[in-house]
Design a protein around this nucleic acid. Sequence first.
DNA 1: AACGAGCACAACCGCCAGGGA
DNA 2: CTCCCTGGCGGTTGTGCTCGT
Length: 321
Amino acid sequence: MGRPPCCDKVGIKKGPWTPEEDIILVSYIQEHGPGNWRSVPINTGLMRCSKSCRLRWTNYLRPGIRRGNFTPHEEGIIVHLQSLLGNRWAAIASYLPQRTDNDIKNYWNTHLKKKLQKHQAIGAIFAPPPPAESSSSIVIPTTTAGAGHVDHHHDMIANNPLFSKDNKYSHPAAEVTQQLIARRSPFADGDSSSSSYASSMDNISKLLNGFMKQSSPPQNDAAADIKPPATDIFNPLLSSFNHISGGTTTTLPAFNDMLPSPPPQQPATLVGHGGYDDEPKQRHQQGPLSPIEKWLFEEAAEQAVDLMDLSDACCSVPIMF
DNA sequence: AACGAGCACAACCGCCAGGGA
DNA sequence: CTCCCTGGCGGTTGTGCTCGT
């Protein structure tokens, strides 16, 4: 089609975002909600292209993002889903609501792929190769999704070095369920390991915490309809996680409601991250996955009893199927 | 202490699909 | 119905950091 670039490249700033830019972007979104990204740099004066604004928000600034080290459980989910779905990072990310597709993609490319290759190399020496053909570095039962898939799944898990390496990881579907159960604040672990600004949600949260308290109330009625109070969004989820860590069964406050739910329980028009409908397309693309989703959650249900033991801190949160 | 290699991750780029005019 | 705009996705690159020599 030869369509022009998303924005005029002249005068467009590139590179890492500064705290000031983040504040401007967040305050604008806070007021108007995400979407209409083309107007964001125009209205805010940010010398960024609309796509850059959207990415910055989606990957780093929006509420509900958990940063820091991936847990072995998350690794297992990613490996498993990647084997099922291929490099459909957005779809995989939908099962890990606290992680962004970019994060998962990066983690896969920098950690898991090598890890699997390494283990496969070792496995090739000590064990016969897996029978399934693969379009990637790991076994992908691409032709078996759906009927009769579960057996392949179990075989795959049994042969998967990541799952056999660590006894703590019991079952991928169970882990999916655990993720559903453990829907909680992205800052729960406090394991933000990076010291750089861009990856420091603490920094951003501090900025926002101070900034948002000074923000004026929403002027836009439409935005006001969908926008939760500023403190609910940006105060590091501030108190939102306390009740989780405290093991109570209190209904989650606004922030938790803003966390996206996993695909199987979500209509196509659901409200996405941050309470805004900012992921309609992503949800729409979940459609073809329904057999996989069904299988995942059927198996997850079978593992529910085990999960009660595994997720003691989170078991009070109801699973919404 | 200095340098280079490798790693990790934020950000960018190009393509594609959906929806509205 | 067609065209075009916008947003989303996956692949890739750039840059800063860490570690080993």
